[in-house]
Design a protein around this nucleic acid. Structure first.
Lengths: 234, 234
DNA sequence: GAGGTTTTCGCCTGCGAGTCGATAACTAGG
DNA sequence: CCTAGTTATCGACTCGCAGGCGAAAACCTC
């Protein structure tokens, strides 16, 4: 319970506050979310987002990073951004708890050792989830899909290096619909989001021309300016 | 202090939580934010965002709506959306206080009667602000400017009816740069964001052809799909 | 009705998205 | 070693929308 340090005391009400993470990743050609099966009431045996409380010395981002460490190696989370804060009075039947959710992304090539009660679930076949967690999941998926179109956020879903075919499959899985490899390549290279390396991959598949290996230019989020509309005159 | 109601108690720490509002509007051809001059320490005489605590019966949105009622007529706020939650340990020198900020928009034609300690400030000439409030303001301005390009959010800044010239001035002020009226009209009409009415405005100016009066089609936020990239194949 | 002012329309440019087919570059099997 | 099969990549094309400019329209005032 924090105490006033100096000046007039702060006179705003306090509430328990938790952080949650919607960790998304592409597994087996489908966009998946990391869920954890609750062992205790309420919502016993229902699937829930990983998360927990915030220590007095932690900021929200540090708190969710700490809670995730128990599930996946922290270095596996390639991107983490705040999503939203929910405040419905009865979102937790036990007491009023405010919740701030984060969106986390894990590249498709990392295969964290998950605890027994934790598993990936396809976002298009979600089980019943605990509390209001499905709202957070929907918001996270919508945000990811939107940002795939106008940012380089794909870097957080893809392996360090990949072929165009792999990237197309990755984007198709994340977006939920098929798309053409030709155009994907042109768009992402013209925007300087991806670049070809000088190597090729024999791909292990049944023959065929070896594919050029590509990589993302940056591993921090950059935005391709949203629209050509409403640009500065002249 | 809320108590456990049923099941195992919630065991996550509590923190004072406040809501803040970044209320933006175009005044005198400039994008402005509504600020309030603090009368007490800390940050005495510095400008701060309106806001306050959250009552146990209120959700965050209801709380900020209530606090805003003291400054502007609630019906004047044409759009309200959550921005972000800040959690820096010492963002308030008195105690640790979490803060959730909202973005509010007020049409340029409404002129609320402001209390004596409250005023509009141009966002390009901000005074020193209290706490971490300038971060919220920067985020709000960036969000508004981005959304002007790919949503119909202009409805919340514009009067119910307007001419193209007025709308161009409004967008120019909000975006911070000049733009052409021709293209603005075409883009917004093609997207069905604005429609012409059957009336014209003599405009009160020094002669000239009367301008067609336009209006926004919808008064709720709608999104023009973000990009043509990465569209479904076929 | 003449001159000035402002809006609006039509035509032009250009670029990026998207498609399709042709060609390149390999593997496997005779 | 040659051929058939497979996959990747490139080039040529279409199309729709952003953006600009100038001419014409529609008013006002004197």
């Amino acid at each position: 319970m924090p105490e006033a340090k100096k000046g007039d005391p702060v006179n705003v009400p306090s509430y328990p506050h938790e952080v949650l993470a919607v960790v998304l990743s592409v597994r087996d050609d489908a966009l998946c979310v990391l869920l954890w099966k609750r062992g205790r009431s309420p919502f016993r045996h229902r699937w829930a987002l990983p998360g927990g409380g915030v220590e007095p010395t932690e900021r929200l981002r540090e708190a969710i990073t700490g809670h995730l460490a128990a599930k996946v190696d922290v270095r596996d989370v390639a991107h983490l951004e705040q999503l939203a804060t929910h405040s419905a009075i009865d979102r937790d039947p036990r007491a009023r708890v405010l919740a701030t959710a984060y969106l986390g992304l894990v590249p498709s090539d990392v295969r964290p050792n998950l605890p027994a009660d934790t598993a990936w679930h396809r976002v298009d076949e979600l089980p019943d989830t605990a509390f209001d967690h499905h709202y957070f999941i929907e918001a996270a998926v919508a945000r990811l899909r939107a940002k795939l179109s106008y940012t380089n956020i794909g870097f957080a879903l893809a392996p360090p290096e990949f072929t165009i075919a792999e990237l197309r499959d990755l984007f198709s899985a994340a977006l939920g619909y098929e798309l053409g490899a030709t155009n994907l390549t042109r768009v992402l290279t013209r925007r300087d989001v991806i670049v070809p390396t000088d190597r090729t991959a024999s791909h292990g598949q049944s023959g065929g021309r070896p594919a050029t290996v590509y990589k993302f230019v940056a591993h921090e989020l950059t935005v391709t300016d949203p629209f050509a509309v409403l640009r500065p005159r002249r």
